[in-house]
Amino acid sequence: MRKVEADALEVIELAGAGRFAELAERFTPRMREVVSAETVRVGWSVQTGGAPCTPGVPAAEATTEDLFRVRTPVSCPAGDFVVVMSLDPAGRLHGLRLAPLAEQVWQPPRYAKPGRFTERDTGSGTLTLPRGAGPVPAVILLPGGGVQDRDGTHGADKPLKDLAWGLASRGVAVLRWDKPMPEHTLTEEYVTPALTAVQEMCQEPTADPDRIFLLGHSLGGKVAPRVAAASPMIAGLVLLAAEAMPMQRSAQRVVRHLAARDPGPAADAMIAAVDRQVATVDGDLGPDTPAADLPFGFPASYWLDLRGYDPVRTAAELGRPMLILQGSRDHQVTVADDLALWRAGLRDRKGVTIRVVRGADHVFHRRGRHVTGAVIRRIARWLRSAG
């Protein structure tokens, strides 16, 4: 085994043992500016669910003369994944991320009928169009937080592709796109690319320019009202598991949920670390606050932008139809906390439909590994009636 491969195994062993401070000692100075031990702790806990995991055989490839990319498969009860690292010959970490296993293959859900639609790549995304005469209602998908490809890929799960194929099978045009890692504010992450997608859809002859809707999931649902406020071309909103609480509060809630599943000193340390980061967002946050001191390692500019944004109030001021769906089994965005805020803020608004999907989790899985067909059917019916 090459030295860099042995180094990669040591990093995974440190993470598995909860020794994140030791792991962070291997960061390069540049990486230390943007990633903290607490950030890695939260990411590892979310990925593994706090369960013991077993690393496989690492594979290294040289990317430059002094840098190697090492991929190590990890077997875990919560789902297998790959740890991808950038390491130098001295064993210092230049990059670290958790990725789905490439060999896992998405299978179309039964409600998807490929003969009823076509797809084409737009460069930045994928346009899925129903066959036959238009114009038809159209949807722009807004994915959840963090780096997301156009399908919302997580292992073999592709919930955004489920939505696109399911809706296109029922006569709805869908545009989905690759979302990069947040860098500065919600504008760069969501608003600018979403408005570009709206313009692309307006130029598509199959799509009805008067019936272009946003469909946002999780953080994408939270930001959808801001996007809609920036464009009169958007006819309405579909919000799936949309955050309403401040995002730092959601981070606390998720960490506490994970810690309750695997209590102990490591879980207590994880909670304490996130509480410190949240206190910084709520308190002395300034433009120069290091990203490593903030939740998810996002920069201070991102959190300052979120401070001034109230998604429920923005949605209430839009005056456009909305469909809000929430899974009853969702522990990341919840009925008690988030949906309660949407209900309270929109109770006097006409044209707003709010429903709880019984037994559905955060990505609207019920029993299988696809967005449940009931959600696809409800969205398609609502789009036809709202238009």
Rank of each mutant, 00 (worst) to 15 (best):
A242F: 10
T128M: 01
A241D: 03
R71L: 15
A266F: 07
E22V: 14
A273P: 10
V174Q: 05
S86W: 13
R378T: 15
L101A: 10
R26G: 10
M1E: 13
C53P: 08
F364G: 06
F364R: 05
L167W: 09
E188I: 06
G297A: 03
T280A: 14
D310H: 10
K179H: 05
L129N: 03
K179L: 08
L195E: 07
F213H: 02
A99R: 14
A197G: 04
A300S: 14
T122E: 05
E65C: 09
R226G: 08
V57C: 00
V46L: 11
E38Y: 01
V274F: 02
G132F: 14
A168F: 07
L93F: 04
P100Y: 06
V40K: 04
W165C: 05
H257M: 04
R313G: 15
M322C: 03
P143W: 07
D210Y: 07
T64L: 08
P100N: 03
L160A: 06
R276G: 01
A164Q: 10
R369N: 11
E10S: 11
D310Y: 08
Q252V: 07
C53I: 11
Q248H: 15
R116Y: 09
L239T: 03
Q332R: 13
V357C: 01
P73G: 04
E204W: 07
T372W: 02
G221S: 10
A78M: 08
T122M: 03
R381W: 06
F20E: 02
Y309N: 12
D210P: 00
S301I: 09
Y190I: 13
